[in-house]
Design a protein around this nucleic acid. Structure first.
Lengths: 200, 200
DNA sequence: GACAAAAACCGACTAAAAGTCGAAAATATA
DNA sequence: TATATTTTCGACTTTTAGTCGGTTTTTGTC
């Protein structure tokens, strides 16, 4: 009764790899089962549909990212750095965005979109905690924290994922972030360094 | 040499209607040609692919919406009202969102996403003009206006399109909008009425 | 170890849909 | 009328998701 679990995981791994390399739409079930060396029927023994597979693959990705975000939350970083680090951590990992740039490609809108949605749902509570900490410390000053956090996430997603952003975008993002949370002006300028530096 | 144009328009109209009612994914070429009473070959005489049809259908929609937005821009409304009215006007028309709610349904992510992208590109310049007017009048105070406008649009899209939003979302949206543009606090409270009232 | 039940696996088959193509019909042009 | 151009036709190909009845393998039980 354990073999099944292993097989399913194997299939999920293959699907994951293929989805992010060639894209969800460009990956056929036949591709997956060829790679796994199994028959159609076996595949459908483990999954109800291709879309359900996607759903589970995304679940896997999210889990990992949330885990990473959680450990940042528990770290001893200053609150603003924590928040920014968490936002940065939920950005698709390099291998997920660079391999043929599949994740952002137009043919992968669906996958990309689904990831974003589910990630936001999961991350809002974490960031809310961090922001509340900031309010207690007097660094931030605002109400309706979860709603504000969600809007921050929406902005950072759209700006940094979809468009080639400029320095002015960053300036505006920093300004807005400070104002959304009621932080002191320029207190989050450090974001600029984070963005400019690590793009190797 | 005119019959072709009419036929193409006819097909675009049918495609438009079907895409927004049953969704892009759920509409087959066969559906479209059955409705039009023509053969496959004829369809492909006018369109290279299904996706190109979608692209052109979206083009049609955008055109109309931009036209409406443009006339708002030229109206004698106060600047803040102008901006909000334009943002409201680019929201999918009632017939586009309510018929089976197809536009927002998960199976229509692609279409929805494409519309949003292209609409933002087109609307940013218009709203930028309005906002600049506001700065000249001393109602707003900010730099990097196009970038700020884009972020406003991103927020309003995400919040109002995708989730069932709450009163707190609206409060936060108003607050953020004021701060993004550097408007006086509570100067944009009128947004609340617009949202609560006209949902008939 | 025998054996039955459950789990895992197989692959030919179906169905739906996008897109192709060569030829026919309609229309314009000379 | 003859010819060229535009428009239309529909059978055909290809690709892909998903089904199904049957077979093999694994597992628990006596």
């Amino acid at each position: 009764m354990k073999k099944g679990e292993r097989r399913k995981q194997e299939l999920l791994d293959i699907a994951y790899r293929m989805f992010i390399t060639r894209g969800y739409e460009n990956t056929s079930i036949d591709d997956i089962i060829a790679e796994a060396g199994i028959a159609k029927g076996t595949y459908y023994y483990y999954f109800q549909s291709k879309e359900q597979t996607l759903e589970e693959v995304i679940g896997m990705m999210i889990e990992k990212e949330i885990e990473a975000a959680g450990s940042i939350l528990d770290s001893p970083l200053p609150v603003p750095q924590k928040i920014v680090a968490i936002i940065a951590s939920i950005r698709p990992a390099p291998e997920e965005q660079t391999i043929e740039g599949a994740l952002m490609q137009p043919e992968n809108i669906i996958m990309h979109q689904k990831i974003k949605r589910r990630l936001i749902e999961k991350v809002v509570p974490l960031l809310t905690k961090a922001a509340e900490e900031g309010v207690e410390q007097g660094i931030f000053s605002c109400d309706n924290i979860p709603e504000r956090i969600r809007m921050m996430l929406v902005i950072s997603n759209e700006i940094f994922d979809n468009y080639s952003f400029t320095d002015r975008d960053i300036d505006v993002f920093i300004d807005i972030t400070e104002k959304i949370l009621g932080a002191k002006s320029h207190s989050m300028d450090f974001i600029r360094q984070l963005i400019n530096a690590p793009s190797v």
